[in-house]
Design a protein around this nucleic acid. Structure first.
Length: 301
DNA sequence: CTCGATCCCTGGACGC
DNA sequence: TGCGTCCAGGGATCGA
């Protein structure tokens, strides 16, 4: 499940692999997750991939203006543009030689000028792809919160304290922080010894700062280890990440806490499965950890 | 403002 | 073997 570290890993891989390549043509499969499929076909060919950036969980491919000698320009193709890619839950994007058989669920193929295709596959199609002009990009990115890797002590505190939402919900809210998802929310709360159901406003200044540092530490380490591969995350080279080996809470229901040996528990907080140590992360007053319905054996590791 | 519910979608795990 | 059911979850949306 691609969150900030996974998207950063993919972006770095793509940067190595496709920077400077020109898009020759576009082939589409299912398009219900693409904002305006015809715009991709119309506006991508002829453009060079000038940069690969990450913004929260978005990847942004900056595209050159269409080569003026190559064709007659009509509407706006003389200006740079962006391809926005959100991997959703199961999205993967990577270049492959043209002749190589396509993976199942391949929905976008961008033929490049070096004999390869940039392919986007996404079984669940929770991802999103959009062709955006500069103005549309700016509009798209407005409303997102702080970069969790860069956010200052003061700004983080301002965004958390005074909020009556649960801290887990705040961490997942992309308008508060951009890029944090379920895994890294749980991991940082475990490291900071804060229960996911605590209200933002109820955190002390010290706890809030501990959480910010925990979050940053975990995200940085996860990036170094190329993210977490739980079910099917693969980077742009087709390699899994390694950070799942370092998970202390996420996915560890019933396994012992690395600090105190108490079994990790699971509860639904902010509508998401949330894993925590009931001893290290004391629940707020009035939060009942209801017994969750039985479910299958928790995945090993 | 915050909440839960619902929908989107498929594959994998599980029960029978 | 096969079928039904549940679950994973980011994000949008809607009603309470």
């Amino acid at each position: 499940m691609p969150e900030l570290p996974e998207v950063e890993t993919v972006a770095r891989g793509l940067r190595q692999a496709i920077l400077g390549r020109r898009i020759l043509s576009v082939t589409l499969g299912k398009t219900d997750f693409i904002d305006d499929p015809a715009a991709l076909e119309q506006h991508l060919p002829g453009r060079q991939i000038e940069a690969v950036e990450r913004y929260g969980k978005f990847m942004l491919l900056r595209l050159s203006a269409v080569n003026r000698e190559a064709c007659v320009l009509t509407n706006g193709d003389g200006a740079p543009a962006w391809l926005l890619v959100h991997l959703g839950m199961t999205g993967q994007i990577a270049p492959s030689p043209v002749g190589q058989p396509q993976e199942k669920h391949t929905h976008v193929c961008l033929l490049l000028d070096d004999g390869r295709e940039l392919r986007y596959t996404d079984a669940r199609r929770f991802g999103r792809i959009a062709y955006l002009t500069k103005a549309l990009l700016a509009e798209e990115l407005s409303g997102f919160g702080a970069d969790p890797l860069e956010v200052s002590k003061e700004e983080f505190a301002n965004r958390i304290c005074g909020r009556r939402a649960r801290i887990k919900a705040l961490l997942l809210d992309q308008s508060v922080l951009r890029g944090v998802g379920n895994i890294y929310a749980d991991e940082s709360l475990w490291k900071a010894k804060i229960h996911p159901a605590r209200l933002g406003a109820k955190l002390s200044g010290k706890q809030t700062e501990t959480l910010r540092r925990a979050l940053q530490h975990i995200l940085r380490k996860a990036i170094v280890l190329h993210g977490s591969s739980i079910s099917d995350f693969l980077d742009a080279e087709g390699e899994p990440g390694e950070y799942q080996r370092h998970h202390r809470a996420y996915g560890r229901e019933g396994k012992t806490c690395h600090r105190c040996k108490t079994p990790i528990r699971r509860a639904i907080v902010a509508g998401r499965s949330s894993y925590f140590c009931p001893r290290c992360q004391p629940s707020p007053h009035g939060f009942a950890t209801l017994p969750l319905p039985r479910r299958g054996k928790v995945r090993e590791r």
